[in-house]
Amino acid sequence: MTSEAPGLWPPSGPEIVFLLLGLVALGSALMVVTTRQLVHAALWLVVCFGALAGGYLVLTAEFVAWVQVLIYVGAIVVLLLFGIMLTRAPIGRSADLDSGNRWAAGLVAVSTAALLVSVVVAGFGAAYTPLEPGRGSAEELGSSIFRTWVLPFEALSVLLLAALIGAIVLSRTDIKGRE
């Protein structure tokens, strides 16, 4: 993209920060899928989402980062924790959180990773872009959403409404299906 692209190594300052955050995200994600305690999985998920939000900040997408923190860390994880509680999951260690499928799953996951990494390295190994702060500010994104993307935005609000009604219908026990 740019002619004065520096080499991959040594990484610049932002890159080092991003890589560290990425490592934290990956490690906590691994903990999410391997931990033997259900509640810990949710907490590791918080760590992972937070690290990702930091990554977004490094990438100059500040509005997305705050939305990530607000919605994912604040709302979704809490929702998941509610779910864990409501299904009377054991709080302590439980031995059988993995199904018998895990070796096949591991194989598929590793090959997926190998395939994707090799593809993206081959495709974007030389891509470089200088970071310009301010491009992902709330102002920029807000004007873009409410000018260009206002119609999908409204459609999404309808989707949310439908999801709301659907969740209510599914959760309530006194609403019976048509006989």
Binding site: S99, N101, A104, A105, L107, V108, S111, T112, L115, V119
Partner: peptide, 22 residues
């Protein structure tokens, strides 16, 4: 009846097809 097995098969097939295509 294990949906996870089904999805595993699905993804493995997808991978194989991708590799074959590449």
């Amino acid at each position: 009846g294990n949906t996870q097995l089904y999805v595993t098969g699905l993804l493995a097939g997808l991978l194989l097809i991708t590799v074959a295509a590449v």
